[in-house]
Nucleic acid binder design. Structure first.
Lengths: 259, 259
DNA sequence: CGGATGATTGAGAAGTCTCAACCGTGGTGG
DNA sequence: CCACCACGGTTGAGACTTCTCAATCATCCG
């Protein structure tokens, strides 16, 4: 219960980064009844191509979305940290082509689609917030394509570190320059379109350049400016600080003015 | 007017591939008033980081979403064919980090966010359809990451051809095995994370293997099975045929049953 | 202490890039 | 009507990044 509530609270906090929700709307989300599950590392939370009837909120640990190749190789397409509702997409597309795996021992809340859909229908502002959350995901995905497609290994890794730090800070679980990255080098490789050997060498290079240091899975960014420069990191794509988007309950009025 | 209406009709048809909409809802969309614009090849339709107050529906031609690198290189993150509402995301996130460029001479309809937002609020089914459309985009983006991150040049190009053919067929502007791909080899390279030189050689290889042939920008797939095999193409990620998702107007009833 | 997992290292192979030149075609101005 | 130009496609050769395979090291845990 406490776990569930604090996870939902994190989710609401995440939504509030980009959407405004009234106390009532927030409480509606906080009141979601859902099942808690503990998933051990490397176990699938969602299997590719299999229909689901619930979304998954990460309450503890680290999860990742992946694409599975024929040869058994995997490509990680997103990291889901605490407070992320992975697979919110599945509310409108219940059979995802991707899978979701727990990278560490992870606690997730299963939230029934039916409830989420009902909430979205009753509260347009919540529907907008959900839609927006999916848009943020798409924006990050597009950036990853740029990162993988047009940057070399060093810049790719640097970008991943910048993003993870920034997101950790936004989620309130660390600072940009000091946070936990509980993924193995092989998992980082799967996210970057590289091999673990090359990730290892690239990470060594960043360390030797004095840009980052690591103790276990704790990352310290020693020179954020330089790291961001290497990565060509521009946080715009995370879509925070978009400025006020009028919330749906004012829409009717706005329309009259605009049109 | 005719252009506008036929483009909106294509957009509705596209939505109907994955969402069910009542005649009234369809007419609401078809009734959208919007401005038509002709964009010449290589001109930007949306500039990265610049706020917009309208979405863009492609009525003619080919557009692409891109990520701009510091050195001037571009990574294309999506192709937008006729009937695609590119940037529907911008309704909920008006300042995109990406840009949109016309690859050929293109006709677009600018649809004001205010109208779309109002429609989404009045018709929950339309809101769901829009949200779902964004989800399809995210699914395609994720697949592209897998394609670029974990496949070699030959498989990447094959996958792009399979996807483009499938989407052309779904959009009613060609068949899987015979369609127009109005992009230069350099633009294909920008989409695949390769150089144009390497795309050229890779395309030659696919031709010499008897898998595809091209006349100008017309593509003929000579051996779909083999091409799909090379690409590891599985159309699941396009999220058609997801099976019936109950439409929002039945939700109240459904909820009572489900919960 | 033994075993497992993940990090590290080395050496050679493969894929892709870079640079530069050349070709082919369609459009344009004289 | 022809010469020319621009753009996109094609080719070649060498360089460089990244991969592959394999071994070794370090750490954690039972």
């Amino acid at each position: 219960m406490t776990t569930a509530h604090s996870a939902l609270q994190r989710f609401v906090t995440r939504l509030l980064l980009r959407s405004s929700l009234t106390p009532v709307e927030q409480d509606t989300i906080l009141g979601l009844a859902c099942r808690t599950a503990h998933i051990s590392a490397r176990h699938e939370i969602v299997s590719p191509g299999k229909a689901v009837d619930h979304a998954c909120l990460v309450a503890k640990g680290l999860a990742a979305r992946f694409d599975q190749m024929r040869g058994g190789q995997r490509q990680i397409t997103a990291f889901h940290i605490v407070g992320d509702m992975c697979d919110l997409h599945s509310v409108v597309a219940p059979t995802p082509a991707w899978g979701i795996v727990a990278l560490t021992a992870t606690t997730v809340l299963f939230v029934p689609h039916a409830r989420l859909r009902a909430m979205a229908c009753t509260h347009p502002a919540i529907a907008m917030a959900f839609w927006r959350d999916g848009t943020v995901d798409a924006s990050i995905l597009a950036k990853w394509i740029g990162n993988i497609g047009r940057q070399d290994a060093r810049a790719r890794l640097a970008h991943l570190i910048c993003e993870f730090g920034t997101r950790s800070e936004l989620a309130g679980i660390g600072s940009r320059t000091s946070f936990a990255l509980d993924a193995t080098q092989e998992q980082l490789a799967d996210a970057l379109g590289l091999t673990s050997v090359h990730v290892n060498r690239t990470l060594q290079r960043l360390r030797s350049e004095g840009v980052v240091s690591t103790r276990g899975h704790a990352v310290d960014v020693l020179d954020w400016e330089r790291l961001a420069d290497i990565a060509e990191f521009d946080p715009t794509y995370l879509l925070v600080n978009q400025g006020p988007v009028e919330s749906p309950r004012f829409r009717a009025v706005t329309d009259r003015v605009v049109n």
